[in-house]
Design a protein around this nucleic acid. Structure first.
Lengths: 205, 205
DNA sequence: GTCTATAAATTGATAGAC
DNA sequence: GTCTATCAATTTATAGAC
């Protein structure tokens, strides 16, 4: 059974099944992990190549460059956040219910896309692609602020905290997950429930 | 009244009064500001010199080097946090009262030392001095965790959230201030009260 | 696809004149 | 104290052999 005698499709599948060790996606995973450990600017392409177990030149064969890696990671995180806005749970019911759903979906997105969102939330805006990522992030912030503002106007949340301030506090609480949450330590269900509960109990009228 | 005829002490005072434009402290302020804008690793000594309005070489005349600037800034932030542990308000009364005081003092420290604490909370631990700063920071985290644990054991805080998780959430909320608080926008009193209130109301039994 | 070699630019830091 | 000039190391990225 030599590979030569097999049809092309079979070869492609076999290749995929044994998980080609170095495809663009797995190298992105490696890069994002190292970026999060040492910081994006504190990581050299040599660091990434070593973490992947190949030479720097081979690494470049698979990826466009350092900034493209960061942009791809940010896009993945931002796509996850954007999907929340379009989720039916974010569009029906009272504002306070939509807010609770959005908070829950956000915590879940933070957990499932943790490395990517971590990188996104640390972006400083030094380059053009970083500025673009920050702009998309601000879109989500505005969406969240509108939701909190509406819930307060509905009389469902305490009125002694400014809407903009309340939003920043609640999403600051939620986003702080990237600083301490590590998969496998605490069941993610418990983290989701505790986080949403703590945020909303403190905020309710 | 020529400078030549004045005694040395007078000259020194006059020099100090007109605020020598480039002393080590004011250059640290400049450096910390730029570090926070572009990230520590994303900032070059050339960037710092330009921000200070002098050449890179002149800048080096006043400061030891890049890492020393970071260490000095972290030390200042950590000194502010350490002072909280030694504050009488953190040592008397029930654990839940001490916790409320510590939360309030922490928010106040974040606000008064904002640039320094911001830099500290972003340190990744890449160098020896950064690792040392992270270790001092962990000391404060342990102190905070003990306080929350005790308050839960006292029956003053809700028991359905793990002490370690509750601590991370509450201090995640408090520390998120560095991401959005900017002096002069919202009165600091309002931020302190709202932050402490939101955190504790959500946490109380 | 992988590698060694190297280019081209930047960086932290210093030398030494004024 | 400030500057220009420069060093030595590092960094992003490419060339080209296998």
């Amino acid at each position: 059974m030599t590979a030569v005698s097999e049809p092309r499709a079979t070869k492609a599948i076999a290749r995929a099944r044994r998980r080609a060790p170095y495809d663009a996606e797995s190298l992105l995973d490696v890069a994002v992990q190292v970026f999060n450990e040492r910081g994006y600017d504190g990581t050299s392409m040599e660091d990434l190549a070593q973490a992947a177990g190949i030479s720097k030149s081979s690494f470049y064969h698979h990826v466009e460059g350092k900034e493209a890696l960061l942009a791809a990671a940010c896009d993945r995180a931002l796509d996850a956040l954007t999907a929340i806005r379009e989720d039916p749970l974010a569009q029906e019911g009272r504002a306070v219910e939509r807010l609770e759903n959005v908070l829950r979906l956000t915590v879940m997105a933070l957990i499932t896309e943790l490395p990517y969102v971590t990188l996104l939330l640390r972006v400083r805006g030094n380059t053009a692609s970083e500025k673009k990522a920050l702009e998309r992030r601000r879109d989500f912030d505005r969406f969240a602020t509108d939701l909190v503002t509406q819930a307060i106007a509905d009389g469902d949340l305490r009125t002694d905290i400014e809407p903009a301030l309340a939003t920043k506090l609640v999403f600051g609480l939620v986003n702080s997950l990237i600083e301490w949450y590590r998969p496998g330590r605490t069941p993610s269900d418990e983290v989701v429930n505790s986080t949403v509960s703590l945020a909303l109990v403190g905020l309710r009228a």
